[in-house]
Design a protein around this nucleic acid. Sequence first.
DNA 1: TCAGATAAAATCGCGC
DNA 2: GCGCGATTTTATCTGA
Lengths: 82, 82, 82, 82
Amino acid sequence: MINQETNIAGERIKSFIERVERLEQEKTAISEDIKEIYAEVKAVGFEVKIIKKIVSLRKIEKERREEESQLLEMYLSAIGEK
Amino acid sequence: MINQETNIAGERIKSFIERVERLEQEKTAISEDIKEIYAEVKAVGFEVKIIKKIVSLRKIEKERREEESQLLEMYLSAIGEK
Amino acid sequence: MINQETNIAGERIKSFIERVERLEQEKTAISEDIKEIYAEVKAVGFEVKIIKKIVSLRKIEKERREEESQLLEMYLSAIGEK
Amino acid sequence: MINQETNIAGERIKSFIERVERLEQEKTAISEDIKEIYAEVKAVGFEVKIIKKIVSLRKIEKERREEESQLLEMYLSAIGEK
DNA sequence: TCAGATAAAATCGCGC
DNA sequence: GCGCGATTTTATCTGA
């Protein structure tokens, strides 16, 4: 019956939406936690901008290292060493 | 002694940075969870674009309600009722 | 001849830049006009904060309507009606 | 009569809001014009990022010059030359 | 001076 | 794979 099928589909859609919304709320909460840390950084007299810069630099560095490590694995694999 | 002070400052900065990085990892993990949900949405044959639009629409509605509630508070405050 | 080409490119770039700068000046001028209106609002004894909140509320409502209309189009498109 | 006063106030508020909204529309329109220029920049093969950088550098330069000129005026005024 | 709002820039993911 | 649009992040600005 069409209506029941529609309802079932509706239920599934609703469930997906609620799961996404739940996760986005968590994300927002974490963003707020991060803001609080920066407020603390400022409160103790450090420069927020600089700390942020360091964080982003470390992220880039980490990504670079991961890429290099993947590249290394690809080479090793290519010469049959892994 | 200057070096010790520097070290103490360095320790505190390091601690802030690590706390931020920990939280950003959590955020990334949640973003991946959300992506997985949308992959599932697609897998069961629903249109991801539409579900995303519904999510954003509900977010806007929520924001509107919050703004309205702020407006009410402003009114009350303006007429000295709060 | 290379120098002429360079000049031509340079002329075009200069023209783009000047067009952008002209428009940004206009934007700044409008922002100042808006500020003047709020100064007037304050001068006649209304609460600027509340007027601003109403403006932003109306903007959100407009966005909501636009999103709804996009959602409708997506639905129609999804069921092959458009 | 209170209701009439309220209406008059309401009319004025409405008028302020509409004036602001009108100006904000103009601002949005100008922002779109700027975007179109950058689309054109890209279409003819120039790098948007670089053009934007030039625009922002020129803006900073202009502001610096204005500040210097103000500073000069302050000095002149301080020594009674203006 | 500082938080909150606004705008700009960079990044990411999607469809073609 | 690449551009395009959407999201996210960063920087600037403004008012309290």
